[in-house]
Amino acid sequence: MPRVPRARVLLVPETMPPRNSPVVRRYRFGRVLTSDLGFEAHRPPGEREPARFRPVSKGLPPTAVEDGLLPNRSSSKSRCSACKNRRMDPSDLELRNRTYAQFVELGRAPAAEEAGPDPAEVRRGWQRLHDAHALVLDEATGAIRMANPFSAVATPYRVHADGRWWYANCAWDAFGIAAALHCDATIETACPDCGDPLTIDVRDGAPSREDLVFHCLVAAAHWWDDIGFT
């Protein structure tokens, strides 16, 4: 059944931080939380909450410690190897697809306990998927941080699509959420230079404005050297 386009959610520009505010300065270092941008107060009544995510880097789940499943800090060399070798075990592929489906259903990243009957096995599978660049785990907790294009943590890229808000990992992924969900969307962010709010509607795959530019700082060969920075 084709999806019905959702009504556009309007922003109130006055809620954005002024230029050179602490929020903007933090944004330029890539640490701003979108809750600081003031979007939360203007969600229309009845609108679903943005995806709520379990905190990251606040201690290690006992099960992860016991099972020795903490993600490795993989070297760039091993990640490049993963880029070339795209073969995936069928059971890992099934876990990956189930995890993505749950992410969309829940509006957040599933916990290992939600993703399968054996959480330890789920964590082991997620680690293999992380190593294969099929998703990204939080290095401290082993929880899902990215199910690209979706982000499990707050970012400067918020996307309204399919009746709820999502966080995207970057500008590319913001459009990617509309692509993955096969629906129209509205992207909210701010210019990393000046902090001015930017709102882009995506209709039938096309952006509503063409005055913006996309800058990719890291060359493609090094995207997975540090995917969080990329």
């Binding site: 294969a132 096309a206 996309f214």
Partner: peptide
Amino acid sequence: GATIAVATLARLAFAWWGDRLAPDWQP
């Protein structure tokens, strides 16, 4: 790095991510 038009980015994203939730997704 590289700077591209936002319209190009949109086309890139839809080609790159469009199958991400497909039940038969393959890398």
